[in-house]
Amino acid sequence: MTSSQEPKKQELPPTAWAMLGLLSFPGERTGYELKKWADSSLRFFYWSPAISQIYAELRRLEELGYASSARSGPEEARAKRRYAITDTGREALAGWAADTAEAGPPVLKHGLLLRIWLGHLAEPERLRAMVAEHIERTRGELASVREAVEHAADVPEWAFPALALRWSERQHLAELELAQALLTDLEELDAAAPAAGPTAGPAGRQADGDAPTPG
């Protein structure tokens, strides 16, 4: 890689590296195919970008010389542009993947837990219903992950994506266990709570002084 390309490499967002990563496996793929693959793999442990993001990053990768594209031949009813990684792109991707400092710690943004944190403003029944809904949704995601794991197991080139998917399977199992424990915690808290309105939060129980700082 030339020194002029190094600053550009550092400026690429994770979406671009993810698209280049999908292209690093054998074969050429359309933007639509990349979206389908992201939906069946990346979303289980990272995220799945919108199709508009995918095409925007593919154009950026081409400008950098990290990817190339060509339209399909006249034998197809509708011409499609297929993308492939270049040698320069593979070298840049390998360098980025080996950079552990850039990976950083995992970031958890749990929408349900934010609402539990504000539980003093909600009805106990609604909180328990939200957790129950989360459990059912997680079970559905777990079934999808297991389907993806089974599919990846049949493709030798996907050995490492299969490892990531198996990690995601274990993560979803842990999420189910945590959600079940949270449901039990809510039931115990509700049983032990005095007869008070749903808005009686920690600050409302302070007789004097400053309100406590939760969390």
Rank of each mutant, 00 (worst) to 15 (best):
D39W: 09
E157N: 11
A16C: 02
Q180R: 15
P105I: 01
A84M: 11
L108H: 03
A101K: 10
A77V: 14
S24E: 08
E175H: 10
E157V: 10
V107G: 01
K109L: 13
G73D: 06
R115A: 11
V107Y: 04
P212W: 09
A132V: 03
E133N: 09
T138E: 14
S40Q: 14
G104C: 11
E175Y: 10
L93R: 05
E123M: 11
A203T: 12
Q206I: 08
R59A: 05
T30I: 06
G65Y: 06
P212Q: 07
G95T: 14
D39F: 06
T88N: 13
A203L: 08
S144N: 07
T184D: 15
R90M: 13
L182E: 10
D39R: 14
R146P: 03
R90Q: 15
T2F: 10
L93S: 01
A84Y: 06
L64E: 11
A181R: 13
A56C: 03
R137P: 02
R59G: 06
Q180Y: 11
A174M: 10
A196N: 05
S41L: 13
L183R: 13
A56T: 04
P106C: 04
G89F: 01
V149S: 06
A98R: 15
A129E: 14
T213M: 11
A98F: 12
M1E: 12
R78G: 12
R59K: 14
E75Q: 11
S3L: 09
K35C: 05
R170Q: 15
R205N: 03
L163E: 14
E33R: 03
L20G: 04
D185V: 11
Y46L: 07
L183G: 12
A129S: 12
R128G: 05
W17T: 00
A70K: 08
D210Q: 14
E75H: 09
R78I: 15
R60D: 00
Q53P: 06
P13C: 05
G215E: 11
D154G: 13
A211R: 08
K8F: 09
G65K: 04
A193I: 02
I85Y: 09
A153Y: 02
D154C: 00
G197M: 07
L93Y: 07
Q180P: 01
R78P: 04
I85P: 07
V145C: 07
P214T: 01
L165S: 12
K36W: 04
R137Q: 15
P161L: 05
A122T: 03
E11S: 14
I85N: 05
L23E: 07
A164R: 10
D210V: 06
I51H: 02
I85R: 02
T138Q: 12
E57Q: 15
E157F: 10
G95H: 14
R137T: 14
T88F: 08
S72Q: 01
G27E: 12
L173P: 00
A174R: 13
A193F: 06
A200P: 02
L34A: 01
T86H: 09
S48K: 07
G209L: 06
E175F: 02
E125P: 00
W158P: 01
V155H: 13
D190P: 00
P13G: 02
S72R: 05
G31I: 00
D210I: 00
Q53Y: 04
K9H: 05
E75C: 01
